[in-house]
């Protein structure tokens, strides 16, 4: 994974995309918004630290907007 600070524009694009889906793998986010996956990973790192996004484990790890997916019923 890349080191350093994330590109704020990519962060915005990630958030915008995640609002259109329930959840996504970061690889699929990268494809959808046309950015490098390593840059998306870095953006997600910051977005989770900022409590905007969160990781979600459902048989593999996805990313979603925080609070969008609840606990299992």
């Amino acid at each position: 994974m890349d080191k350093g600070a994330a590109n704020p524009e990519i962060k915005d694009k990630v958030v915008a995309y995640l609002h259109t889906v329930q959840k996504a793998k970061s690889k699929d986010i990268a494809t959808a918004i046309g950015e490098k996956k390593s840059a998306v990973d870095l953006a997600v790192k910051e977005l989770t630290a900022e409590d905007i996004c969160e990781y979600l484990y459902i048989t593999t790890t996805y990313i979603c907007i925080k609070g969008k997916v609840g606990a299992p019923e």
Binding site: A49, E54, I58, G70, A71, P72
Partner: peptide, 20 residues
């Protein structure tokens, strides 16, 4: 036990396994 869900600590995506 049921399948894991969404639990964790701020900033991390790993290290906590949800169990109900």
């Amino acid at each position: 036990w049921k399948h894991g869900g969404i639990v964790g600590v701020r900033g991390y995506g790993g290290g906590v396994i949800g169990r109900y």
